[in-house]
Nucleic acid binder design. Structure first.
Lengths: 226, 226
DNA sequence: CCCATGTGGAAAATCGATATTTCTTGCGGA
DNA sequence: TCCGCAAGAAATATCGATTTTCCACATGGG
């Protein structure tokens, strides 16, 4: 193949990895709708790659609970439901509580600087580049848990984060007009974490989650979504 | 999600699924050693199938933390370490505690019958068919958590179970001579669960894990393993 | 009229081959 | 002797094509 690919540093790697990132974003942001059939050939053309990378990427997404595999009948995006959302919310609260407390136990100055930086970068992108903001928002939340030094737990939290944010995207504009000042909440969490106050930090973090959680759960209940 | 469950009966389905089960068993039981390079071609011949099913199975195992993927350099089985083992043990205790308590909250007569049955089947296989016993042992532990009605949490627990049992296999005969009466422990957990006594059940379950855990951790520390 | 059975078409799963990348080894120069 | 480079060998990642499986619909029997 003589075609010169424009390999942007971050999106390079292998075709499988690119497909994985692209598909995950499409599912999380709702470009691919819940329960939608994922035809290999269609995606192949859409992402301009072969069938093998697509299949492998879908396999990986299956383990992230974003895609369901039906034996001999291909793949489809995960369904959504109120029960599923509430499970995710509850698990997130429980696991992030564990992780955050452990993280604060192991806190170091380096970690402190890490979360301050992550927080600043997130705020800088606020209102400018929504796409970038979302990435940095996740980065901030993960950074809070970083020094828990538990790769598996962090992976679980990362997965749950993606599952949760998918619902937020699905709610879309419905969520906008209830935008309380999320910025304040973030700052509050950050300050408590920097102060090594695990109880306060955890309480604020969980409130932060439950706030939007309750609202979304309401939408799912009254049939606005799904 | 089909793949995760312990399907004692069905060995067929797709080539990918067969490869997944076979490879997982090989890694968990130590046939494939920690850190070992997993050459596609070698496995292809060994399992008598094509390269695509192998690759897909390895992708799935990557998400189970049993296989590591190195970009453009193939796959290898996950490394082992004392830190990794202790992380698994701790997470297991935390997550299964959550799941078991929730399971007991939701307890029904059907669930009660389910765990009694799982316990009986496990004991029946004891000392006869070690391979079958292991499957039923996992089935028993998962059945305890079953009525938590939290598929994601159960999946996490299932993964952690496999990661943990891998260390047990690696310890192998070294573990045999410290065999306290595990049967009694199982019965104790079962009874507390049937009695809907969450505190006792959880305490016994966690002790059950920590018992072998401490021993294994010792082995990893003094260099007998790895 | 309803259910069972057969048939055509579409999609998935898998295979075989190619292209790309990485690893190894041996040679030459310092 | 040691380091670096380069060519060959090996393994991976990917593609295109084949085989297998499933689904929808029609057709005929009950």
């Amino acid at each position: 193949m003589n075609i010169i690919h424009v390999d942007v540093a971050s999106s390079a790697r292998s075709a499988t990895h690119r497909a994985y990132l692209a598909l995950r974003k499409m599912i999380v942001t709702g470009t691919l709708k819940p329960g939608e059939k994922l035809k290999i050939d269609g995606l192949r053309k859409r992402l301009d790659t072969g069938a093998s990378p697509i299949r492998e990427a879908l396999s990986l997404l299956t383990s992230d609970n974003l895609v369901e595999r039906i034996d001999q009948r291909g793949f489809r995006t995960a369904e959504i439901s109120k029960a599923n959302f509430e499970e995710i919310l509850l698990l997130r609260c429980q696991l992030e509580d564990l992780a955050l407390r452990e993280s604060i136990v192991n806190a170091t100055d380096e970690w402190e600087e890490l979360i301050v930086l992550a927080h600043h970068r997130m705020n800088r992108a606020k209102g400018k580049d929504p796409d970038l903001f979302e990435d940095l928002h996740k980065a901030f939340h993960m950074a809070l848990l970083e020094s828990a030094a538990s790769p598996i737990l962090l992976k679980f939290c990362s997965q749950l984060y993606d599952l949760n944010i998918r619902y937020r995207y699905l709610a879309g504009s419905a969520l906008d007009y209830q935008r309380r000042d999320v910025g304040d909440e973030h700052t509050g969490i950050l300050n408590a974490a920097v102060a090594r106050d695990a109880d306060t930090a955890s309480e604020r973090l969980l409130n932060h989650y439950r706030m939007t959680g309750a609202f979304l759960s309401g939408l799912l209940g009254n049939g606005t979504l799904a």
